[in-house]
């Protein structure tokens, strides 16, 4: 998963309109034609909830007074569901008492527009809500990125790893984790200076990103250490990917020190079958294998296939 692709919002964000009045949908469609948004119209609140969960729109326009389920209940459920709680909701309602407005905001609405609405006003409020939402998303993505290399950071990796390990425990699908560490990085820093060291880290990040697949998450784990999360990948295949990366690093020429090659050592751990839900077991085993690679002379890949009981023996790939 390349951070740069997930950072940018869609050019045409989806706006979900939940309102029992067909007139409102017709009017909004005409009045928001010029806006760069994709309107999805729903008259049934329950259907609205399920579409919100499956399509995760950038914004919801929500009516309050609907037969079957009132808008406050819809809002409550949107905000209580992990997949939809971050979606901004503008309440659009003919119920305009102060108490209704307060309740709407307390339940998590970002704005409240009274019906019958002025469309010019609705348009600018819609734009404003979309802009804030986009900035918040950008901010939360940035907080998960490593500043020097542009790769995902450790916090992102930890979160993705636990998601992936629990998915793997449920489904029995394979997965693998690889840790890569730059060999003799301190000596590169000491000999050529820190800017050269930083350039090496950036260069390694570029090679890792190029050689990995889109489904892999490449992260900077700290210092000169990188970690790759490989979903749906058997340990042997993960080791083959790492071997390819190792060769690419060894072959690279470094502008600041063409005479000095850079190499990296790898530790890989993974499973081809259902394993207990234990994220640390993968990292620990990969880390142990990295140590084995270093001990055996660096610039190599060591892989372990974890058994269902989470024990494994290292084998040089």
């Amino acid at each position: 998963m390349d951070p740069t692709t997930t950072q940018l919002e869609d050019a045409r964000p989806t706006v979900l309109v939940i309102d029992d009045s067909a007139d409102v949908h017709r009017l909004l469609k005409a009045r928001l034609k010029q806006e760069e948004v994709e309107l999805v119209s729903v008259t049934d609140p329950r259907e609205g909830l399920s579409i919100a969960a499956s399509q995760t729109p950038a914004l919801v326009l929500l009516d309050l007074d609907m037969p079957g389920m009132d808008g406050f209940e819809v809002l409550r459920q949107l905000k209580d569901t992990p997949g939809t709680h971050h979606i901004p909701v503008i309440v659009v309602s003919g119920m305009t008492s102060m108490q209704d407005k307060v309740t709407a905001f307390e339940l998590g609405a970002v704005d409240f527009v009274c019906k019958p609405f002025e469309f010019t006003e609705l348009r600018v409020r819609l734009r404003s809500a979309l802009r804030v939402h986009r900035l918040l998303q950008m901010l939360s993505t940035r907080a998960q990125l490593d500043g020097l290399t542009g790769l995902w950071n450790r916090a992102y990796f930890d979160q993705r790893l636990s998601e992936e390990v629990s998915r793997c425990a449920r489904s029995g699908r394979p997965m693998a984790v690889a840790i890569a560490d730059c060999d003799h990085f301190k000596s590169i820093n000491d000999t050529f200076g820190h800017p050269a060291g930083d350039a090496v880290l950036q260069g390694l990040a570029k090679i890792l990103r190029r050689e990995c697949r889109n489904s892999d998450s490449v992260c900077r784990y700290g210092g000169e250490e990188f970690v790759i999360l490989m979903p749906d990948t058997k340990p042997a295949d993960a080791a083959a990917v790492c071997e390819r990366i190792r060769e690419a690093i060894e072959a690279a020429v470094w502008p600041r020190h063409p005479e000095r090659k850079v190499t990296a050592s790898f530790g890989v751990a993974g499973t081809s079958q259902a394993t207990p839900n234990n994220p640390t077991a993968f990292v620990d085993a990969a880390d142990k294998n990295l140590y084995v690679s270093k001990k055996a002379g660096r610039n190599r890949v060591t892989m372990t296939e974890l058994s269902p009981s989470l024990t494994g023996t290292a084998a040089a790939a």
């Binding site: 029992d20 009045s21 007139d23 409102v24 009017l27 009045r31 007074d65 037969p67 003919g94 019906k115 019958p116 609405f117 469309f119």
Partner: peptide
């Protein structure tokens, strides 16, 4: 109640505020 409520919300949008 429902019919008048819907008309109240819609009429203004079509440019008939007095009707709403």
């Amino acid at each position: 109640k429902r019919l008048s409520h819907q008309l109240k919300g819609a009429a203004g949008g079509y440019g008939f505020p007095t009707l709403g």
